[in-house]
Design a protein around this nucleic acid. Structure first.
Lengths: 285, 285
DNA sequence: TGCAAGCATCATTATTATTGATACCGAAAT
DNA sequence: ATTTCGGTATCAATAATAATGATGCTTGCA
């Protein structure tokens, strides 16, 4: 049994299809078939059920896949750790919730690239829970998410407290009538949306006059044009204050936390440490 | 990088000598040299210093070897877990301190073999600290040791409280004069010896009139012949009471604990669980 | 009945690992 | 100084293994 066998195995397990796994791995189907059969023979048991439309893991296969993931993660970490130089370098994958990408966060990124040109930084954006999954799955070194997350595998560091405001178009004058307002929101799971829901519920206002946006840019565009209002950190409006009206909301719902999360058991590369330090410093200003 | 590369790497690291590692692995030296060089090239850094009399790990090599061990342990565990059948089977390596091997422990072993013939049991004996090391090193599934051990990687289960007695030959009559007694002891590190030392110190008796035995059998033989006295659990004398005199010692030094230790993070096979259950039950009687 | 999608098989080829012979290197012995 | 010894490195030849491409087999579905 070799690490490459585990990679092949996991590819099949994820694709639930040998042909697709072969394609993904850049091999030919017969090869992948042969390898997985060899592995099964070596273990003396089937890892997959074969059905006409693909394959699926047996119980033992499920168990084995957990081990396989751990083993491969560990082997990657070993290589990374040992290759690491004194100066931050190598790949660094960071997740950022959409709402943060609008901040002067971008400036900080540029600064990071300038200081540490040997780090190849890749930024993923997504919802907090997407990013959470990716961090737990070793697909990201760390992520900036909104809200508190509690997992035995994570550590999180508070980066910044954001102040949510009720944002409207500047065409509308003054604090709107909540019950008559149409709301622009992110898909379910977004902490801003949850805060909005909680607030409106406490005001006794129903929450069905909503439009959902998967992209924050579009959402903001919609608010700017006066189609709807929303709840966002004022900082997201990126200085374009003249186009918007911004109103405080009750203190109970006003604050959200941006946290940097990472896996407890994952080795923090020099690049990661440098990155998180730079972010914390720049946020503190 | 493959698991076999890690095995080659670790063999060299342990032997500190490529030729010996090759021999141990059943390869020819040039092959092992080539493989390790290929691995080093892949990592882009040397794992070993070469000197005229062999090789030694670089700093990075030390780091890498820690990962390599973990990865290989995990991969072995993966195979073992997945191969495991409903009924206990497979290899089971247990360590037992010398002093326990004399008990009716052997009967329990025989019973275990009878009940679970598919388990290939191997018993290692040694001192408590030897066994401790082997358990931590994944060389043993578990071990019976005397005394309390505290390691974040271990869990231990109390099996039995042993009562230490002052053992003399039946030739000598009555409680001996401690200051005139010659003592037969196990090598340093044995908990019985430590207890004896502590007791004698508290009595103000010096502890230099000693003979060391590496084998408990020989030690007991020596005591039987009247050459020396010692401190042992009465149970060790194996029913041969007529040949010995046995005297209680102060309560403070009288008791030792036999514990079953195992690694916290190690998967407990069905065989191990069955074994430890059988032992606990048989001790409870 | 005839696809189409998917896994299995197999002969062939490409790649990689292993060997065995030999070169090399430094330390210790002569 | 020279040899010898215990070790690693190199390299051409060979053995073993992995990958390919073509084809066969099964099943669900139209």
């Amino acid at each position: 049994m070799e690490l490459s066998d585990l990679k092949v195995f996991l590819a099949i397990a994820e694709e639930r299809n040998i042909s697709r796994a072969a394609e993904r791995l850049g091999y030919v189907q017969s090869n992948v078939t042969a390898r997985i059969r060899k592995l099964e023979e070596e273990l003396g048991l089937p890892l997959f059920y074969r059905h006409p439309k693909g394959v699926s893991l047996t119980d033992k296969g499920v168990t084995f896949s957990e081990y396989a993931k751990n083993i491969l993660n560990l082997s990657e970490e070993a290589v990374q750790v040992v290759k690491e130089t004194e100066f931050p370098s190598g790949p660094l994958a960071i997740g950022v919730v959409d709402s943060v990408t609008c901040l002067d966060f971008m400036d900080t990124l540029a600064e990071f690239q300038r200081r540490y040109p040997d780090v190849s930084l890749s930024i993923w954006s997504g919802t907090s829970s997407d990013l959470l999954t990716k961090v737990l799955d070793h697909q990201l070194d760390g992520a900036f998410v909104i809200g508190e997350f509690d997992s035995p595998h994570l550590v999180s560091e508070h980066i910044q407290r954001e102040e949510l405001t009720l944002v409207t178009s500047s065409h509308m004058r003054g604090f709107p009538d909540l019950s008559l307002t149409r709301w622009a929101v992110s898909p379910a799971g977004c902490p801003f949306r949850r805060a909005l829901e909680a607030w409106l519920r406490s005001e006794g206002v129903s929450f069905d006059n909503i439009i959902e946006f998967s992209s924050l840019e579009t959402l903001i565009g919609c608010v700017r044009s006066g189609l709807a209002a929303t709840l966002l950190p004022a900082s997201v409006l990126a200085g374009d204050y003249s186009a918007f009206g911004s109103f405080p909301i009750p203190e109970q719902y006003r604050y959200t936390q941006t946290c940097l999360i990472r896996r407890k058991d994952r080795y923090s590369s020099k690049a990661f440490v440098a990155f998180s330090k730079l972010i914390v410093d720049s946020m503190a200003v």
